[in-house]
């Protein structure tokens, strides 16, 4: 009986994916992409991977979708008779993609005996750290180095976007995120939603230690609230030279680094936590990371500076 909803979900995902590829209009394709992201997050829920589902919805559906929509708005409209790749190229690309997809599917479907997984071992040490969410244990204990380096990647991505700033605008503010026609409904939404959204974001971070949720999901919700406020024209994006902005961007990595190096003295080395204080340290690191993620995502969507510093 449970097979039916799953089959329906799979069909929906496939339909949305095909539509995204086939549709001619750029904007429609982006909207298709967002829909696929949201449907995929439903699939993750069905697979009991709520953390992945939350991330997929927030990043795959939300943040990436917004970025792509902004890009669409800034691109010149494509002329009707624009150059399309040769049909042979289409067929070749399609063929190659199908072969890879079919090969991967064949391998994934093949059963592995015994199923190879580290999940039981990952869960075994949860008590020692006082955490209830195995995903958080993986991200902030076993694989803390990866998480730390990923946050550095985010800072580098922001620098990469800022690289595109014209010389004379360096230090200035990104272009306004205002929607073309200012709408009263958006303004109202931007005044009503953020208080609730911020609470949800903070809850996701705070709760991530023991339940699904965590820094990335919480941080993205916070970023979404900030972006909403900017799009409704209630706030302008800040100048990129602002000291406070810079400090907020690096806050997460710095707190993480300090906690990591402190491990040399208070525990057994880099990125290890003393058992008695593991949970408070991890929660502080997560809070700082979420704040930095929110600011970085917001600034990534806002783009390079487009005005001279005042």
């Amino acid at each position: 009986m449970t097979l039916l909803p799953d089959l329906a979900l799979v069909l929906l995902i496939l339909t949305a994916a095909v539509w995204t590829v086939a549709v001619r209009d750029r904007r429609d394709a982006v909207i298709g992409f967002i829909v696929v992201g949201l449907l995929l997050s439903l699939a993750w829920v069905r697979l009991n991977a709520v953390d992945v589902a939350l991330t997929e919805a927030a990043i795959g559906g939300g943040a990436t979708g917004l970025l792509l929509l902004r890009a669409c708005a800034r691109l010149v409209p494509r002329p009707a008779e624009s150059v399309l790749p040769h049909p042979a190229m289409w067929i070749l690309t399609g063929l190659l993609c199908s072969v890879i997809a079919a090969g991967l599917a064949a391998i994934v479907v093949m059963p592995v005996e015994p199923p190879a997984t580290l999940a039981p071992e990952a869960a075994a040490n949860m008590g020692e750290l006082g955490l209830g969410n195995p995903v958080t244990v993986v991200l902030l204990a076993y694989r803390a180095l990866d998480t730390l380096l990923e946050k550095v990647v985010l800072v580098l991505a922001l620098i990469g976007v800022w690289t595109l700033t014209p010389e004379q605008f360096w230090g200035g503010a990104p272009a306004s995120l205002r929607a073309q026609q200012s709408s009263g409904a958006l303004r109202l939404l931007a005044q009503v939603l953020p208080p609730v959204g911020v609470v949800i974001g903070v809850y996701l971070v705070w709760n991530g230690a023991d339940h699904p949720g965590g820094t990335f999901q919480g941080g993205t919700v916070l970023a979404a609230m900030w972006l909403l406020v900017m799009m409704a024209d209630l706030r302008e994006p800040p100048e990129i030279r602002l000291h406070t902005l810079r400090l907020l961007v690096i806050l997460g990595p710095v707190v993480f680094l300090v906690a990591g190096f402190a491990g040399f003295w208070i525990a057994n080395g880099f990125l290890s936590y003393p058992p008695a204080f593991a949970k408070p340290i991890i929660v502080i690191v997560e809070a700082a990371l979420a704040l930095s993620i929110a600011v970085i995502l917001g600034m990534l969507v806002a783009g390079p500076a487009a005005r001279a510093p005042r």
Partner: peptide, 30 residues
Amino acid sequence: TVFLGQDLFNLFVALELLTFSAVPLVCLDG
């Protein structure tokens, strides 16, 4: 990190770090 890593995912993160540091260097001239 690429030279020291022993874990395939850790090395993936190292590759991402490498990509995001290297690509903007190319368009430094604008």
